[in-house]
C-alpha cells in the first residue's frame, strides 16, 4: 500500500513527526478522559440533571436510570465503538469486493456510450 511513503527527502520534520510529541498529546488526551470521569463521580454527591424527566421518580425505568450512573456515557460509547468496529470488520467479510467490481461490467469505459459502435461486447460473442 502507498502508506509506506514517507516525507520527501530533505524536508524538515514537523512537530508531530517527533514520537515524543505524539506521546505528549496522547497523555494529555487520557488526562482529559480521566478528568471527565472524576467530574462524573463527583455528581454522586450533587444533583445530576436527568435527560429523562419524570415528575414521579418511581416512573423511571431501569434503562432510564442508567444515564445517571457515574461513567455511563463513557462506558456506553467506549463499548459501542468497540462493537461498531468489530461488527464492521465482520461486515467487510460480507460486502467487500475488488475495486473494479462494478466498473468491469462497463463494456468500454472510454467509449462515449459505454459500448462500441456496433454493439459488440468483449467476451460476449456478440455478432459484429
Amino acid at each position: 500500500m502507498s502508506h509506506d511513503h514517507g516525507p520527501p527527502p530533505g524536508e524538515a520534520p514537523r512537530w508531530l513527526d517527533d514520537p515524543a510529541n505524539v506521546k505528549k498529546l496522547t497523555r494529555g488526551f487520557f488526562a482529559v478522559a480521566a478528568l471527565l470521569l472524576v467530574a462524573d463521580v463527583m455528581w454522586l454527591f450533587v444533583h445530576k440533571h436527568a435527560t429523562f424527566f419524570h415528575n414521579d421518580p418511581d416512573a423511571r425505568t431501569l434503562a432510564q436510570d442508567a444515564e445517571l450512573w457515574p461513567g455511563f456515557y463513557s462506558i456506553y460509547s467506549f463499548v459501542g465503538i468497540v462493537l461498531l468496529v468489530v461488527l464492521s470488520v465482520g461486515l467487510r467479510k460480507l460486502v467487500m469486493r475488488p475495486e473494479d467490481y462494478y466498473s468491469r461490467d462497463y463494456a468500454d469505459p472510454d467509449d462515449e456510450f459505454g459500448g462500441s459502435a456496433d454493439g459488440a461486447q468483449p467476451g460476449e460473442g456478440h455478432h459484429g
Binding site: F29, V32, D40, I75, F78
Partner: peptide, 11 residues
C-alpha cells in the same frame, strides 16, 4: 464523555 471515550476506543 461520550466523545472522548469514543475517541479513546478508536485510538
Amino acid at each position: 464523555q461520550l466523545l472522548v471515550f469514543a475517541a479513546a476506543a478508536v485510538f
